[in-house]
Design a protein around this nucleic acid. Sequence first.
DNA 1: TGATGCTAACTTTTT
DNA 2: GTTAGCATCA
Length: 774
Amino acid sequence: MHKYLEGLNENQKAAVEHIDGPLMIVAGAGSGKTKVLTTRIAHLINCGVDAFNILALTFTNKAAAEMKERVEKVLGNTEARNLYIGTFHSVFAKILRVEANKIGYPNNFTIYDTDDAKNIIKEIVKEKNLDDKHYKPSFIYSRISAAKNSLIGPDEYLQDNFIQQEDQTSKRPLIGEIFAIYARRCFNNGAMDFDDLLFNMHKLLSQHPDVLAKYQHRFRYILIDEYQDTNAAQYSIIKMLGAVHENICVVGDDAQSIYSFRGATVKNILQFEKDYEDVNVIKLEQNYRSTQTILNVANNVIANNKKQIPKKLWTQNVPGERIVLVKTMTDNDEGKFVADAIKEQQMRNHYANRDFAILYRTNAQSRSFEESLRRMNIPYKLFGGVSFYQRKEIKDFLAYLRLVVNNRDEENLKRIINYPARGIGKTTLDRLVVYAHENNHTLWEVIENGAGNSKIDAFVMMIKSFQAILQTKNAYDMAFAVGKHTGLVQDLYNDKSVEGLARYENVQELLNSIKEFTETPDEDGEITDKTLGSYLQQITLLTDADNNDDENADAVKLMTIHAAKGLEFPCVFSVGLEENLFPSSMNLYDRDSLEEERRLFYVSITRAKEKLWITYANSRYRFGSLVQNEESRFLQEIPDSFIDKSFTGLARPQASTRSFGQGFSSATNVDRGSLEKLPSLKKLADKLAAGQQRNASPTIASKPGSAPTVDPNFVADNPNDMSAGMKVMHQKFGIGEIKTIEGGANNRMAAIDFGDGQGVKKIALNYAKLKIMD
DNA sequence: TGATGCTAACTTTTT
DNA sequence: GTTAGCATCA
């Protein structure tokens, strides 16, 4: 017997040893799904299947990387490098890059992210003189996206009576027309959005039997992770690819289906058995992750959903502690409570920072937790939120790179033709765009053929000079040249404001990441391609979740529940359990959406291994004003016997009657209670916290796709202790000497000489984080 | 033409 | 509380 089979239970082993024919693995939360999947791949290879013939599709690049790594570990050799593992989008993008010409696209097609797509839609809405308050770009985008994910193109959209009826009802009858224009414009730009990667992959395979046959032959064994999250387009593509060999193995858990808003349909997993003859179904029901109590809570909650594959999750783990349910007055109190509880657990049970995760429904909720953690000097890492790649300076830079690779791309051309400012006005540009569209040319063709404008000619010359070296230079050399010769880097460098500095650093960071890309050996085995085109293709498909740089850094993790899927943590705070927030107010009105919210809650509960806290606030800021919310209906689905009520004295049923302030501050943190009694001190603390946040914000996500981990060793000193002549350290500027201090008590400005080209900077003492060096 | 400052609109969730 | 878009001013 192979050694890797030893640690498996009966069902896991059965799943691993199944080789040919369709297989569905229903894997409950924490049941060792990834282990089974990776061991199965290793087993296939050991049984003589060529790694080149195995395709594994995941939803995040991170999951793909982890899988590859783990297979490699089991095998003990590098054969895993030859596997074709990736996300749906990245694998299809790679294939489309090879086959693009067959469906009329250039090989170097641009990939538009959601922002790009919405901007184009916005333009179209404007051009058609429609009201963009009514024809909201985000709404239209979601309609188009949903259509494409159901394999409905513009023509079908316009001809579909039901869809047209829907648009009539919502008083937006022109969406179909906008869809058609949008699709044509993307095509003319040589660009695909995320949905096009699926839609066009499907198109490619259905229109070109030879191509289909080629990949059917190539991918003799197909494995799909998170099958419950696949949409109709993905389903169709998988079905086509697997039609010959039918060696399809899907893994999923209907209870964890949380992406229906993206077109995913649980139907795919519920119907898998009907799609193929002789489907082998294996259920993994033993949970190895959580305590019995946590699992009981999860089971009780999910039992309220009607549509389910029957299964019974059980565990041999210890019963564990009851879960803690806490109500606080405000969202800020919720933040404080969590930070206090983390500190307390660290003192009492010696947990590390990395053992904690705070999971919320929406990204906007992160703020109060960031503040409280920062105030208590607990290092944290924020996942998600505004992505690094969405920042203006990054998009500008990438726009140049994209244009160089694909000059048909009108959107990116328009973005940077006058940035940095080179005197090409809006009027001129608009005229050229109209001319181009009317004469069926790309914008580039028009400006390339002499617009009779010396500024434009100079711009064209510059872009052409980049294109001339495109084939001989790698991505980093190209990016460096672009940054230098466009004046982009210099432009940002000249801006000495705090924001300007952050932008400059972000661009440097981008350059670093491109350098890293060119220097990292490609594990793909397929394409060893360090060109700019190759870089751009993967960069758009990268997400924040994929950044594993400092994933193991000792920091508390903050993320949405969606982002937490597939992860586990010793201690979990599931926060914001309030009606209208969780479940979200947008999903209260039909059973399916509500059940999805419940599955989301289920996912958050089942992330916890040892301890679980569930919190909610009586009132919180939303849209800048205070709103009151009832406790989430999901809380009533947790039997009292699993809840620790002694903890704050605030748990049900007294929740609404007892005042919050006393309960929690005495139960969790005495120091803070006394701090609050001194108004002046508290004010100072608040001010400091606010100032630190303002100071920290420009550096958020200074690394690709990530927010900063607060340096735990850097403790700012009280600014009142500082005076002229002192040496101080600034986290970014380094060590400097205070020359003068001006201004009154709350507004003291220090002139600090940091030397070495950075010179004297004026810094507001109340906001800056400075450490006294003497 | 470009920069600055104010208002309004906004928040699900992600490849 | 934040950000994008618009209006106003230099």
